[in-house]
Design a protein around this nucleic acid. Sequence first.
DNA 1: CTGTGTGCAAACATTTTGCAAGCAG
DNA 2: CTGCTTGCAAAATGTTTGCACACAG
Lengths: 153, 153
Amino acid sequence: MINNIENLTYEELLEKFKTLLKTNGLKYTAQREAILKTLFDNAEHFTPENLYLLVKQSYPELNTGITTVYRTLNLLEENNIVTSISFGSQGKKFELGNKPHHDHLICEKCGDIVEFEDEQIEKLQEEIAKRYNFNLTDHLMQLYGVCQKCQKN
Amino acid sequence: MINNIENLTYEELLEKFKTLLKTNGLKYTAQREAILKTLFDNAEHFTPENLYLLVKQSYPELNTGITTVYRTLNLLEENNIVTSISFGSQGKKFELGNKPHHDHLICEKCGDIVEFEDEQIEKLQEEIAKRYNFNLTDHLMQLYGVCQKCQKN
DNA sequence: CTGTGTGCAAACATTTTGCAAGCAG
DNA sequence: CTGCTTGCAAAATGTTTGCACACAG
């Protein structure tokens, strides 16, 4: 299990990944690196399908299968290198967990997204988890509203 | 679109549902009512499959198909009578929206959902919205973790 | 009667698994 | 060499659609 990969360079991240593989008796393969690199180079939220297409395009010679993308994403998620979020009804999206945690304020009119971080909320969430004896691993908080700009219109 | 169904009796809820159907040129059927009643009688978070099984068990004479459950849930969701929580690839869970606002603690192992309400968090959300000059209309907060039961396994 | 609703089966979409061959260590 | 990894195809899931009959209005 990898504890924190915030703000790592690609080289550092790759090093962590190799260590992880070695520790678990797994092997370092070109496909696994291609997937990690693609995630790193594109700071986006990927569906497995999107990621698969981009990896194929970026590294056509590897002929990576979508099966491998799924398997690698699961491996990365189990080890906290990527996190997944459910976006509505359509599947999961994965993102590299190399950015500090943040939540989102979303404007329902213009679709603008503001990231924010709030120490107090994080603490309260821990308290609530404790209240129900949950071992908290993650959370999702999204506030929906109308931003200042759109309130004027 | 139905605005608010909090704390309604079943009779009031059914009335709203009938009005909704009439307004949209849809028909009031025994299956649709069976699904609504089952949701009302069991304050739970249902997967379509779970709900289907329970409706079948409660109203065997209707011989309701899972197709109808899916179609009715979609209809109810579009009209804000039920809300859904997404589990990414593992499907959705639905609940009747007749309870005051609450958030969810979700166990990543067994999929169990615990509801909670926290006044302080609601207030903090208002504060954050104010900080960014957002006019808050809604929010979504889900805490993910491992429940007490699953921690033992 | 008219057209919506229904159950069934089939189609779809997404993710996982079995397998034989490939390749890292 | 050993056994983990891969891609493919098939299977498993979960959800939607086409259709002919049922039935609400």
